[in-house]
Write a protein that binds this DNA or RNA. Sequence first.
DNA 1: CCTTGACTGAAACGATCGTTACATGTAACA
DNA 2: TGTTACATGTAACGATCGTTTCAGTCAAGG
Lengths: 202, 202
Amino acid sequence: MSIRKQQLLDALITYLVKRGLADLSLRPMAAAAGTSARLLIFHFGSKERLLVEVLAEMQGRLQRSFGALLAAESKPRKVPLLRAFWDWATTGVNYDYHRLLYQLQLLAAQNPKVYGRYLKQNSMTWLELIQPVLPEAQQTPGFATLYGAVFDGLFIELMSTGDRRRVNAALEDFIALARMHAGMDGPSKRPARRRPSSRRSR
Amino acid sequence: MSIRKQQLLDALITYLVKRGLADLSLRPMAAAAGTSARLLIFHFGSKERLLVEVLAEMQGRLQRSFGALLAAESKPRKVPLLRAFWDWATTGVNYDYHRLLYQLQLLAAQNPKVYGRYLKQNSMTWLELIQPVLPEAQQTPGFATLYGAVFDGLFIELMSTGDRRRVNAALEDFIALARMHAGMDGPSKRPARRRPSSRRSR
DNA sequence: CCTTGACTGAAACGATCGTTACATGTAACA
DNA sequence: TGTTACATGTAACGATCGTTTCAGTCAAGG
């Protein structure tokens, strides 16, 4: 990949993150990236392949960032895993990338013919990552789904309102609820065998 | 409003519900509604006013349907309110309408300049409706937000996967968690004074 | 110097966009 | 019957879409 193309990718991601995925056209994109529609086609082949490359690059960055998070997490956890994951996902560029991926997922849910192909299937199925460390009493599809839904719902609430304080409070309330249900002493320390995971895509 | 226009509205809603809001154009819409772009402009003035009318009509139907739900709910509730609301929102045409409105909200969150105008503000802020009947121990912005997030997240999960059984199980798990937290005897029967509501738009 | 390959600009292609002009049809009312 | 208002079809407007054509610039390697 040429240097110029990498520069364009960076600029395009920056542009997409603030502009969203709906109603994209080449010429405005090109102008924002400091080039021309002619050159976007030249470097990426077509508009569709451009989107594929941009979204793949974004997912790659997220995955590398998530790897760094896991490496940084100390073994005896200081904070609940859900809390750590939330903080990671809603900070800095990770927040921007997730916002775009949520929009992509929603568009794909309603129009799979058009947007479905952009969803790298099973990438970042964070449910599969979180489920094994849930307290044993919550190792069920229902609870795993609930954890995912709380995350999704709170993220969308944060996107829509920007009210970080209130959303954080809601997350803490949920963590307290889950702790209480799992037992008085916090999440179980046991390895807790893996279960067949649900089919979520984010 | 002429009879013809009302027919067109019905057909357009049917079309939008299955097609989604992204990348709409007049001529395909017209074809689906059995008319021509010329007549859509004639009846609605412009594409934008057409969308306004269609979405307003849809929200109106939802509100009337919700009113019917409230009227049908017996005073000593047989099922938790969240469960009743969930069943109402995910059944029949209500499900289709909510799906479209979720997509609208997500698009608006990323691109308020374009889609924000279609959101009737403060319509269907169901949080304001549910919050007063929450158990007293959960009458906080955090818990109210959590209830909303659980609903949103589960709805999106249902949209994305269609797995009603698993999503229903997750909802039951949450209800159980909330019951346990509020006390062993289910939701409080007390009127429970109203609280300043959060600013949600769905 | 010459060739080659990567890169770029200007302009245009056909398609489709929202919208409009213009003519016509139909039915109610005077 | 003539008038009026609503409804509809055909065709086109200018704008913008993704993409292509053609011509060029520029640096590296022979």
